[in-house]
Design a protein around this nucleic acid. Sequence first.
DNA 1: GCTCATTGTTACCTATGCTCACAATGAACT
DNA 2: AGTTCATTGTGAGCATAGGTAACAATGAGC
Lengths: 149, 149
Amino acid sequence: MTTPDPDGLLAEQLLRLTRRVHRIQKRHLEHRDLGITPAQSRLLRTLAHWGSPPRMADLAERLEVVPRAVTTLVDGLEASGKVRRVPDPANRRVIRIELTDDGRGALRELRAARRSAAEEILAPLTGDQRETLGGLLNTLIDGTPAGPC
Amino acid sequence: MTTPDPDGLLAEQLLRLTRRVHRIQKRHLEHRDLGITPAQSRLLRTLAHWGSPPRMADLAERLEVVPRAVTTLVDGLEASGKVRRVPDPANRRVIRIELTDDGRGALRELRAARRSAAEEILAPLTGDQRETLGGLLNTLIDGTPAGPC
DNA sequence: GCTCATTGTTACCTATGCTCACAATGAACT
DNA sequence: AGTTCATTGTGAGCATAGGTAACAATGAGC
């Protein structure tokens, strides 16, 4: 079946689905009552998969936002003791972001929250379909076969 | 290839892609310089595919937002003359939203903007892949085979 | 009549991200 | 040395998108 503007429709569906993903993710996070917003959660997960503590600028690039946006996120996470700002002795302009023990504990909860949220979102799809979808999304994001997690 | 948390990864990819879709859509809209935000654009397109002028509540349901959010969108569109609030004589609580001629003109531009944005986003996919993706997204959104446009 | 549901809106609040300007620092080149 | 330029993070302020809670006007059921 062909629609008059299939690509535009696809973008529409993508945006619509996105709103739902946001809502569901937000709800699952709030349910766990960690005091962590979705964007903070993403930063924490990104942090967890880093080797040594990254710079603010590294995080900004990885998260695809401007550095100023990272400042706000780290502010919130630092206030709740999930991360620590550590000055870099080698270059006094840079600040490295470290996970605290508290942050590592929160990450376990976050993973569970994300898993249940993903389950709710992806419920209508079979395993094969999920795999196909993952492949297509990867192609859209870039050419790599694996993401940040 | 199997990752330790494939579903969580999928949600991650979806959110990441979403940010990109938003950015691209916003840029294409700004480029056309219509003074219309992405959310307003969505409301206009929804409006265009309605039979008779819908109520605010109808729009809220269709857009999957609370009625209060529609008020703001309509405020903006009415201020720029793209839609008109028309009281319903049969029920004086309801307000019906009509497209103006100006709004209809804007819609043509919007369609072009959306098409070019979609083309940019979907460039890495072949026609078949787009079709597959559309099917999967539809399944995720609900069971219907066709969307709002 | 009285009560209750519907409808839109006023008045906030939150989350996310942006730009612009700036201060501190480091690097490069006279 | 000094001067200039790039990097790095952040303060200030804005825009978008959405949400809650309270409310006034209206309609519907009794």
